[in-house]
C-alpha cells in the first residue's frame, strides 16, 4: 500500500513535469500481485485472481443463492437467474438446434463468466479480466478446439464438407474451400480480439477523458463525455458477451450440421 502511495506521488510529479495533463489510460490493465510487490509468476495471487474470484462469487450468488428458495413465483434475483437461463437456453436451441442443448452448460459458463466480468470491470477502480487477450484468447481457443473436436467426432471426415460449398459452381469450389479454411482458422482470432478489443478500448477512452478532467476549463465536458461513454460501455459489456456467446452457438451449429 505504501509503495502504491509513492507510485501515486511519483505519477503526480511525473504529470506535473509533463505540463498538467496526466494520461495513463493503459495503467488500469496492469496485472499486480495482490500481496507484496514481487514479480508476477504463474501462481501469484494477483488482481486477476481477485476479480475472477469476485466474478465466481457474483455468479454463485445470482445462480445458486438467488434460486435457493426454488419458488414457483420467483423473487427478483431468481427471475434474473431464470431470465439468463432462458435467454441462453433459447439461443442455443434456436441457433445450434436441439442437439446443441447437450453443450448448454458450457455455453452458459462462457456467457455468465464474460457478462459478469464485463460488468465488474465497469466498477470504478476495478480490474477488467476480459480486457486481456490472454483471457479472451483462451476462451476463444477453448471454443475453437471443442467445436472442431465435436465436428470430427460427430461427423467424421464428412465434417470437411463444411469447407466444400456444394451449392457453388464446381470451378469455384476449390477457391471457396481455401477461403472457407482461412476464415475457419481466423475465427478464434476475431472471436477473442472482438471481445478484448471492445472492452479495452472503452475503458481506455474513459481514462483518456478522465485525464482531460484535470483542466478546469474542459472538465465539465470531460465529465459529460465520461458519463456518455460509460453508458455506451454498459451496453457494450452486455452486447459483447452476447456476441461471443451467439458466435459460439454458430460455430457449434457448424460442427453439428456441417452440410450447407
Amino acid at each position: 500500500m505504501a509503495t502504491e502511495a509513492t507510485h501515486g506521488a511519483e505519477m503526480a510529479e511525473h504529470g506535473a513535469d509533463a505540463g498538467g495533463l496526466v494520461f495513463h489510460p493503459m495503467d488500469q490493465f496492469i496485472v499486480k500481485p495482490l500481496f507484496g510487490d514481487g514479480a508476477v509468476g504463474m501462481f501469484t495471487i494477483t488482481n486477476v485472481t481477485l476479480w475472477m474470484a469476485i466474478a465466481i462469487l457474483v455468479i454463485t450468488g445470482l445462480m445458486v443463492l438467488g434460486t435457493s428458495r426454488r419458488a414457483v413465483i420467483p423473487s427478483r434475483s431468481q427471475s434474473v437467474a431464470e431470465m439468463a437461463y432462458g435467454f441462453i437456453y433459447k439461443m442455443v436451441e434456436d441457433v445450434a438446434g436441439k442437439d446443441g442443448l447437450t453443450y448448454f452448460p458450457y455455453i452458459m459458463t462462457l456467457f455468465m463468466f464474460i457478462v459478469v466480468s464485463n460488468f465488474l470491470g465497469l466498477i470504478p477502480m476495478s480490474f477488467t479480466t476480459t480486457s486481456h487477450f490472454a483471457v479472451t484468447v483462451v476462451l476463444a481457443l477453448c471454443v475453437f478446439l471443442t467445436v472442431t473436436i465435436i465436428g470430427f467426432v460427430k461427423n467424421g471426415a464428412s465434417f470437411l464438407s463444411l469447407f466444400w460449398v456444394s451449392s457453388a459452381p464446381l470451378a469455384l469450389r476449390p477457391v471457396l474451400a481455401i477461403i472457407e479454411i482461412i476464415s475457419y482458422f481466423v475465427r478464434p482470432v476475431s472471436h477473442s480480439i472482438r471481445l478484448a478489443g471492445n472492452v479495452m478500448a472503452g475503458h481506455a477512452v474513459i481514462k483518456v477523458f478522465a485525464g482531460f478532467a484535470g483542466l478546469a476549463l474542459i472538465s465539465p465536458l470531460s465529465v459529460v463525455a465520461i458519463t456518455a461513454i460509460y453508458g455506451l460501455e454498459v451496453m457494450v459489456a452486455f452486447v459483447q458477451a452476447y456476441v461471443f456467446t451467439i458466435l459460439t452457438c454458430v460455430y457449434l451449429k457448424d460442427a453439428l450440421h456441417p452440410h450447407h
Partner: peptide, 25 residues
C-alpha cells in the same frame, strides 16, 4: 503476465462450470 492470467482463468472457468452444471442449472 500471460501464464498467471491463463492459470487463474482456467481455475475460474472450472469453478463456474462446476457451480452452474452441478447446482444452478
Amino acid at each position: 503476465w500471460i501464464p498467471n492470467q491463463v492459470f487463474w482463468l482456467v481455475i475460474a472457468l472450472v469453478v463456474v462450470f462446476l457451480v452452474l452444471s452441478r447446482i444452478a442449472l
